[in-house]
Design a protein around this nucleic acid. Structure first.
Length: 486
RNA sequence: GGUCUCGUGGCCGAGCGGCUAGGCAACGGUCUGCAAAACCGUGUACAGCGGUUCGAAUCCGCUCGAGACCUCCA
């Protein structure tokens, strides 16, 4: 089998993946700030990395997957007088800040569970790691790469840039950044507009604050990820993921902080998932161009024509590469939904296939191609194309137009299940209408069969058409009729 | 304005120097009482204009168009 190749945002190239410790992978992904419901764009990133997590596990790696919950509300903007996002929401909803955090953390977990995401190995919170963050600030201060002003501590970007290289991830040069940055506010404490806060002094009235060597305050924008990834994965770890929009400045600052504090660059492979768009534009909380998962599942929204099952949405996302933007539309989702059902029908059919003395298809070659697709930077769309080839073959065997040996059948079952369920994280959508409907349908189809035997086509067609109108699809197969809900 | 992506057949979406991507839709066929489903077959698509090359959707340049980042956002 060929090697796993990952596109590393740091080098801008595909690189062979070599973990620091054989057989183990440290994976860190930036989690959400829990001050609002997660929208589908947020979900896409977490679903993408869930797939990465799953595939690494499938390959046999022991993966420690750390994803933070940002529950310390960072400021709304970089200016001196920003308002804490969680505190602001708490004021608007008349709740304690930690009630806000709890409410949206629960929503986040529930939503990702619907998408069949596996929970991360560790899900640390920012407020639970204030000491680690303070510790990291002190380390950076000791190295002389940060300075304190009025109870706040700022990272000295220019000084760091002299020794290391600031901007290597985002391809930015410090001179260009300086030229492009706005005028400083008159009372800004920062020496340079590029500097960023490691620790902020809490103004009177600021709710979420902690005691520190520099007085009462709260951690800076980017610090928590560095502190927590270092604590749980070490000074240097294998993969750091996140949304494309976090590349600059968030991840750039993480590199600078981590490097400054520990002396080594924190991450070997940087992975960035691309944006989910709606009407061709990035989904974004601040612009309101969003769709919430529950609006999608219920169909209660102005954007799409109907409701969609979370697993169908997951499949839709897997049909695009994680590094490409993906646009959300009814048409595209309906197409994905139909394809999904065709694939799952074949998967369900597989265990019942008859076997013979020969196989008319090269299963081993197919398996090889599936791994090749995934090993090439997690190319799920190509994997899915191969899965459809298999679906076609399964149907052919079912119709006695192709053959399959017992041995190949078990191989096929093993790998189809591995790729469809373990790696892509799909699952069969249960027709959960309960036994009542099933009993009724059994009776109806029985009556219809009687009519058909009597060649009473008027009655049998009427039953089928009426059921169809009610959203129940009747399919006449060789072994009798079956039904499914639309 | 700066930095960087992307523009593929009716729609979605891979590919990224030569070899059928795939899904949905459409059309023809097999099957069926008729349908549906399933299966078989059918598309000479790569924004435009130049260039490099034996050969370009794929590399280079320009033009047009879309988007992301440069302020919190996955």
């Amino acid at each position: 089998m060929n090697e796993l190749i990952i596109y590393n945002s740091l080098s801008g190239k595909k690189e062979v993946f070599e973990p620091i410790t054989d057989g183990f992978v440290g994976l860190y992904v930036c989690g959400p700030t829990v001050y609002n419901f997660v929208h589908l764009g947020n979900c896409r990133t977490f679903i993408s990395f869930d797939m990465v997590f799953r595939y690494l596990q499938h390959l046999g790696y022991k993966v420690r997957y750390v994803r933070n919950i940002t529950d310390a509300g960072h400021l709304e903007n970089d200016a001196e007088e920003g308002e804490d996002k969680i505190a602001k929401k708490a004021r608007l909803e008349q709740l304690e800040p930690m009630e806000i955090v709890q409410k949206y953390t629960v929503d986040f977990h529930e939503t990702l569970a619907k998408f069949n995401n596996r929970p991360p190995s560790i899900e640390p919170t920012a407020t639970g790691h204030i000491l680690e963050q303070i510790d990291m600030v002190q380390k950076i201060l000791k190295k002389g790469l940060a300075y304190e002003v009025n109870g706040s501590v700022y990272f000295d970007v220019e000084k760091y840039d002299n020794e290391a290289l600031y901007g290597e991830l985002s391809g930015r040069k410090i001179e260009e950044l300086k030229a492009g940055s706005r005028e400083l506010d008159g009372q800004d404490e920062k020496r340079s507009p590029l500097d960023f806060a490691l620790w902020k002094n809490a103004k009177p009235g600021h709710i979420m604050k902690w005691q520190s060597p520099w007085g009462l305050g709260f951690p800076g924008w980017h610090l928590e990820c560095s502190a927590m990834s270092t604590k749980y994965l070490g000074d240097q770890f294998d993969i750091h993921g996140g949304g494309m929009d976090l590349k600059f400045p968030h991840h750039e600052c993480e590199i600078a902080q981590g490097h400054a504090a520990t002396g080594v660059k924190p991450v070997r492979y940087w992975m960035h998932a691309n944006m989910l768009t709606l009407n061709g534009k990035k989904m974004s909380k601040s612009t309101g161009n969003t769709l919430l998962p529950n609006e999608l599942f219920s169909g209660e929204n102005d954007v799409l024509d109907k409701a969609f099952h979370p697993i169908v949405v997951r499949f839709f996302m897997m049909q695009a590469h994680y590094r490409s933007t993906l646009d959300f539309s009814s048409e595209a989702l309906i197409a994905a939904e139909k394809g999904f059902h065709r694939l799952m029908d074949a998967v369900s059919l597989l265990p019942d296939l008859k076997t013979g003395k020969t196989s008319s298809w090269d299963i081993d070659d197919w398996i090889k191609q599936c791994y090749q697709a995934m090993n090439d930077d997690f190319n799920t769309p190509i994997l899915i194309a191969h899965l459809f080839d298999a679906a076609k073959f399964i149907q052919s065997v079912n119709m006695n137009q192709a053959t399959l040996t017992e041995e190949d059948k078990s191989k096929l079952i093993e790998k189809i299940n591995a790729f469809v369920f373990d790696v892509l994280g799909l699952k069969l959508i249960e027709e959960s209408q309960g036994d009542e409907l099933s009993t009724v349908m059994e009776l109806v189809l029985e009556l219809r069969q009687k009519a058909r035997e009597n060649k009473d086509w008027t009655t049998s067609d009427a039953i089928r058409d009426k059921l169809n109108e009610a959203g129940i699809l009747v399919k006449d197969g060789a072994e009798g009729a079956s039904w499914s809900k639309e």
